[in-house]
Design a protein around this nucleic acid. Structure first.
Length: 536
DNA sequence: CTAGGGTTAG
């Protein structure tokens, strides 16, 4: 009787519809013994009828005490986006099992309500591996890789053995964070557990190694794979592009097509990305044409974004502008932002103002664009315009994301922000920097203060520059790691020109490979030069 | 059986 209430309350809220008999039969899990078919039918139905029919069928047939069935209903409502109904049912249920909870958590995560999902996760009386996975994947998806890794640690502590799905989610978090140590550990664990050859796992390993700056390790995983999917190829091409190995990326694409693998839209993003990183305008144009002509792939906004970036970074600003005006789909903030970025490199204030006007209409809360514009004005010493941009930011309630760099030493992540004095060894770091600075000056280094966007005295600017987060992280790395070992630094924003010049020199002075992960690519500094060949 | 995973422009 108790169970009856659950159904009755619900059917009062929703009028059951019985008017489509064939679908009704097909969707009914007790008439159609093929459950996955039945479920599919239900899901389709629910899209059309808002869920009422299946529920009605089940009620009429009088199946009331089957928890499996109730879970199915909760799932069906939830998967059609009817979270209110799903939650209502969930709360009315006299009994729930771990699956019921997992269904709710999974759907909440899919709808990007991670807080809601975590709320339920915290309340669960017992958790299965799937509960942990749902939550870990949720944190990864919403850009909280640290929380994902924290949860993974707790899962291990709870004595649960991660399976291949967990591994994929955690590796994605490692990729986001550049957490190479954990990534390597998971790689070992995967091999030991026997799913190190799983295609999904390998694809994620490739991505993890790429984003942690270990291109060779990524390549090894790729080369050892038994079966490569288009995802594997695309990931590897994108990785080579990200590391400035443009020719190698194009070669891989040639190899791929030679053996008959068909590229998809993502593959072309990787290829265009590769062209962008070397200013290969003709090749980029040719790929853009090829994707539609040879493969029938309709360019998406991302592809247009790549093209605008390619053209404008190469200095073809007017052409980039016309390209945007003529594109068949509505440009977004990123597309105009790419033009803005090119205007900065090539110091074109007029076009920058046109670009920013469009950017701000489309994406007014993204601080990055204001900063670029402010930089353009600052480089032209137009300080009144700089302060106008700052006021605009204030009015919009937009704050500049502080630049921060991190370096991992013995498994511990050390994070630095500009002028950071919070590190216990801050004083030593600053001293080491001064010493390094002297050697750099001997090699002809001049601080490039034009990248400092504030209107202040030159010596003040130098101070700001000297304490950019990547420099602090680097000096710390030099102090804490054995001579000649490579140093890996992760940065949340793009490197500035001054840091780029400084890091080049330092790599020669201290005879170290310095690998810096930018917001969107890698710079590998070695013997006084950078893998990006100064085009970035 | 009802719940889970990979590559994506600046």
């Amino acid at each position: 009787m108790e169970d009856n209430t659950w159904i009755t309350v619900q059917s009062q809220q929703l009028t059951p519809l019985y008017s489509i008999p064939t679908v009704k039969e097909f969707a009914n899990p007790f008439v159609n013994s093929n459950l996955s078919q039945s479920k599919q039918a239900c899901t389709q139905l629910l899209d059309v009828l808002n869920g009422r029919i299946v529920h009605g069928v089940i009620e009429k047939l009088g199946f009331q005490s089957n928890l499996f069935l109730k879970n199915s209903i909760v799932h069906l409502y939830a998967s059609c986006g009817e979270m209110d109904i799903a939650r209502f049912l969930f709360e009315k249920m006299p009994q729930r099992d771990v699956v019921t909870w997992n269904i709710m958590i999974t759907r909440l995560v899919k709808q990007e309500d991670v807080d809601g999902a975590f709320g339920l996760f915290s309340q669960m009386p017992e958790r299965s591996v799937r509960s942990w996975i749902a939550m870990i994947a949720g944190f990864v998806q919403c850009g909280k890789p640290k929380d994902a890794i924290g949860l993974f640690t707790q899962m291990e502590e709870a004595g649960l053995r991660p399976n291949e799905v967990t591994v994929v989610a955690v590796l994605a978090a490692c990729a986001d964070l550049g957490a190479l140590d954990l990534g390597r550990r998971i790689h070992d664990y995967s091999n030991q557990s026997g799913f190190g050859r799983n295609t999904h796992v390998c694809n994620t390993l490739i991505d993890m190694y790429i984003k942690c700056g270990c291109l060779e390790a990524a390549r090894r995983v790729f080369d050892d794979m038994e079966e490569r999917t288009i995802v594997s190829w695309s990931a590897m091409i994108q990785g080579l592009a990200m590391h400035g190995q443009v020719e190698e990326a194009l070669k891989l694409f040639a190899r791929m097509t030679r053996i008959g693998i068909k590229p998809n839209g993502v593959t072309f993003i990787g290829l265009l990305h590769a062209c962008n990183h070397m200013g290969l305008i003709d090749e980029g144009r040719s790929f853009f044409a090829k994707m539609t002509n040879d493969y029938g792939i309709i360019p998406q906004i991302e592809h247009y974004g790549c093209m605008v970036d390619l053209l404008s970074r190469a200095g073809l600003l007017q052409e980039a502008h016309d390209f945007i005006i003529n594109m068949p789909i509505k440009p977004n903030g990123v597309v105009w932002g790419a033009l803005l970025g090119g205007c900065r490199v090539h110091k074109h204030i007029e076009l920058a103002e046109e670009a920013i006007k469009n950017v701000l209409e489309l994406d007014p809360l993204n601080d990055g664009y204001y900063v670029v514009l402010s930089n353009i004005y600052a480089e032209a010493k137009r300080w009144e315009d700089v302060s106008r941009v700052r006021k605009l930011m204030r009015d919009q309630g937009v704050k500049k994301t502080p630049g921060s760099s991190s370096i991992t030493i013995d498994g511990v992540v050390h994070e630095f922000v500009a002028g950071d004095e919070t590190n216990p060894q801050a004083e030593e770091i600053f001293q080491r920097w001064e010493k390094l600075l002297q050697e750099m000056r001997l090699k002809g280094y001049e601080p490039n203060t034009s990248v400092v966007l504030l209107d202040m005295e030159e010596n003040e600017k130098e101070k700001v520059l000297n304490h950019h987060s990547e420099k602090l992280a680097l000096v710390f790395g030099l102090m804490k790691t054995p001579t000649r070992t490579p140093i890996r630094i992760m940065k949340n924003l793009r490197v500035c020109e001054d840091c780029h010049a400084a890091l080049k020199l330092i790599s020669g002075i201290v005879d170290r490979e310095i690998i810096v992960r930018d917001r969107n690519r890698f710079h590998c500094f070695k013997d006084g030069s950078c893998s990006c060949k100064d085009y970035w």
